[in-house]
Design a protein around this nucleic acid. Sequence first.
DNA 1: AATCCTTTCAACCGCGTTAGT
DNA 2: CACTAACGCGGTTGAAAGGAT
Length: 309
Amino acid sequence: MSEKRGSNKYEEDKVDLRRGPWTLEEDTLLIHYIACHGEGRWNLLAKCSGLKRTGKSCRLRWLNYLKPDIKRGNLSPEEQFLILELHSKWGNRWSRIAQHLPGRTDNEIKNYWRTRVQKQARQLKIDANSAMFRDAIRCYWMPRLLEKMGSSQSMPSLTDSNATTTAGTMEQMITPHGPPQPFSNPAMHYYYPFEGCSSYDPPGSENHSPTTSSASMPLPQLPNLSEFSSGPPDNYSGASFNPFTSGHCVDNSYGLDAMDLDPVSATQLGFSVSDYTMGNNNCVDNLGDGLWNMNELWYVRKLNEWGGI
DNA sequence: AATCCTTTCAACCGCGTTAGT
DNA sequence: CACTAACGCGGTTGAAAGGAT
């Protein structure tokens, strides 16, 4: 490398190299070359194909965009669930996570995490790497996804962006003067913050395990929602409101091709979709990808302010 | 209609790892 | 074993698109 630096040949190559978005002609050239010679040896490919791109750029274009088995479209609830689950296990190991989502690239998963998941952390003013946020994901977001996964099996119309649901919302689990009530489906207790989460104890919980109570840091009595000076959102008692979707439209549809994810990957990880499918507590809302409504978010915020962790 | 702002995602970059010599 | 090139991964950037004002 260094021996080339400064040489005419090197400068010529550098000047000739194209950057930025790929054109249709370049894509065609790359596809044709790989069809004839196969993948790999990217620098050689870059030289021989006639593309004025680096081997690195060719590889990326092929793996992230042109490869035939790349799945386009929105991530299905199951895929989102897998990402959240695997990220909690492995952190930012994007390529490793991508291996469990056929047709999805590490880049796509990384983008999903940054644009959707981290955005919610920012909205909540919680560090995306904190235990608080991880628990919030497990306790609120993942159950929502599980509901959707269950619903999508029996409600193909979910793929319709105009689809509405007769099911209730999170409000149905929130008493007029208290936090969300536990999910009626036992499977949901796995994620329910007051019974299953690891990092903090539920405020106001009367029957949680003593082993998880925070003896060192007494938790405040859970106040009525109306007692907060700032108060819950104006539409607390109203219809679902989502701060992530309000003011910015989020696509409600998942796309037909996003629904046919092979469920094997979930099973392999030790959980099954059917195990967690909501029963009569099927409170799917119409929030789209923003899976928490304002009440949930506000409540998580309060947990944070109480020093719940 | 024009401008500004926000979001998304394709593409780039740097660095660590692996393979070849 | 040392060196080099290629590869792959994760972080970051910036252009495009769409929504808000």
